[in-house]
Design a protein around this nucleic acid. Structure first.
Length: 208
DNA sequence: GAGATGATTAGCT
DNA sequence: GCTAATCATCTCC
């Protein structure tokens, strides 16, 4: 069965429990992110990520150990989704990492779509295919049908998961750069916690 | 309970 | 390049 095959290449929970969230962010480049909603599979491979390094990272919602109703998801065991609303308009999808009690997460900023493109175009209300379909974190979540209803769900289930299909990029085409949209974070805004595939058309903002 | 704000995007100049 | 859209969440009173 196809389900059995998919099960074999899903990333195991142990992958997400690693304490080096920056290294994990880099290794997620080229992994496949999928959702399956109402029997319709959609997804593609990840081309842009950002790491949020827990209580010592001023750009993180959990900076200063702020465990609130919203951020408590990040304090749970790695391998689940953290979805929240930004600017009252956009939902953002993150992957929670590290063992329980350590609030680290990885924001998925862009993917290159490979499956269910027509369904994604409908969700984005697009007539023709454009790279903006999954460029930027708000766009990725919308195209894949990810909403706050999926906050804290497991990535081992059949709604939302990540696969390793053996796709890799050489080091020289993966760039490390400062994160986007976190100017309020002082010196931490300069940390090279953003990773992306150089020149990929789905990567947001500067991508050289 | 009120006031400020944001891990953004799309559309217009 | 600039800005409106739009509301859950957090911070103080």
């Amino acid at each position: 069965m196809a389900e059995t095959a998919a099960q074999k290449i899903k990333l195991p929970e142990s992958f997400y429990l690693d304490n080096d969230v920056v290294q994990l962010s880099k290794s997620l480049i080229g992994k496949y992110l999928f959702t399956c909603i109402d029997g319709v599979p959609t997804g593609g491979y990840i081309v842009e990520t950002e790491a949020y390094n827990g209580i010592i990272d001023r750009a993180s919602h959990a900076y200063g150990d702020r465990n609130t109703p919203r951020t408590k998801t990040m304090y749970l065991r790695g391998g689940i989704a953290y979805v929240y609303l930004c600017y009252g308009i956009h939902e953002m999808f993150n992957i929670v990492t590290s063992p329980e009690g350590v609030p680290r997460a990885i924001l998925i900023r862009a993917i290159e779509p490979t499956e269910g493109i027509e369904a994604m175009m409908q969700r984005r209300k697009m007539e023709i295919m454009k790279p903006t379909i999954t460029r930027g974190p708000g766009s990725v979540a919308k195209a894949l049908g990810i909403s706050r209803a999926m906050n804290a769900i497991s990535l081992q289930g059949d709604t939302l998961w990540i696969e390793d299909r053996g796709l890799t990029f050489p080091d020289e085409v993966i760039a490390a750069a400062p994160r986007i949209g976190i100017d309020y974070a002082g010196d931490d805004a300069l940390l090279p916690y953003r990773f992306y595939v150089k020149g990929n058309v789905y990567v947001s903002k500067p991508n050289k």
